[in-house]
């Protein structure tokens, strides 16, 4: 077998989403087999001891997932999640998710934006004292069309804009932060079944770090929820 061909297959491997499980499995095995004879002199590194990340149950419909999620919620698990190809209405309630604090933080960010915009304009248009902002700067009262130096109506458009800007940036950044993004690696990516989470399958994953997690029992529990398969995912 030609080594370049297998190389091409190996690089292609992470991209082929719709290939069947078996097909991918064979290809990746081939890759391992063919590349290894080139360096027979070297000893194979000892396989890293793997740790169980969690158990993944696969469902065919959003309805099955919802029913199962309600049961996982009622069983008292905390470290678990659902993975779906599209937003499923009502899943938040079925999972018993708590209300996020994000709105309060965004409100704070928005209010900060209003205040910053006001202070910025008041200082650069109305107030007259020196201030250290990296370097020494000086406020400068401007006379604009005969208006008083402190003219709130003129400041409002900028206050409005900075409120929106601060809120929007805070929303995106905090959303990334709370979700642990950007996340370049996740144990679930190793599962070939999980690829269909972006296509036509619905998953519940209970993590091994959950205090209620017991490998055997949790697997049995997941099987009672009517999944099409249950798979152990390693870290």
């Amino acid at each position: 077998m030609d080594i370049t061909v297998t190389r091409r297959v190996t690089t292609k491997f992470p991209l082929c989403v719709r290939q069947s499980f078996d097909e991918i499995h064979t290809v990746s095995n081939m890759a391992t087999i063919v590349t290894s004879p080139t360096d027979t002199s070297q000893e194979r590194p000892a396989p890293k001891p793997t740790r169980l990340y969690g158990l993944m149950a696969e469902f065919e419909t959003p309805g099955d997932l919802m029913a199962a999620a309600e049961k996982v919620r009622d069983a008292g698990f905390r470290w678990w999640d659902c993975h779906t190809p599209f937003p499923v209405h009502g899943l938040d309630g079925a999972m018993g998710l708590k209300r996020t604090v994000l709105p309060w933080l965004v409100f704070g960010a928005g209010a900060t934006g209003t205040l910053v915009a006001f202070l910025l304009q008041a200082y650069t248009n109305s107030w007259n004292f020196p201030m250290w902002a990296g370097v020494w700067v000086h406020g400068y009262p401007f006379l604009i069309s005969g208006k008083p130096a402190m003219s709130l109506p003129a400041f409002i458009p900028v206050m409005f804009e900075l409120t929106i800007l601060f809120s929007a940036l805070a929303t995106v950044k905090l959303m990334f932060l709370f979700n642990g993004l950007p996340m370049l690696y996740h144990p679930l990516f190793k599962s070939n079944r999980f690829r269909r989470a972006s296509n036509d399958r619905f998953f519940i994953v209970i993590e091994a770090r959950d205090p209620k997690f017991l490998p055997k029992r949790t697997e049995e529990f997941l099987r009672t929820l009517g999944p099409t398969s249950v798979e152990a995912v390693e870290d």
Binding site: S145, G146, K147, P153, A154, P157
Partner: peptide, 12 residues
Amino acid sequence: GFSQYMLIWYAN
């Protein structure tokens, strides 16, 4: 309301 006010206030 503010748009109406501000234009008139500014133009004076």
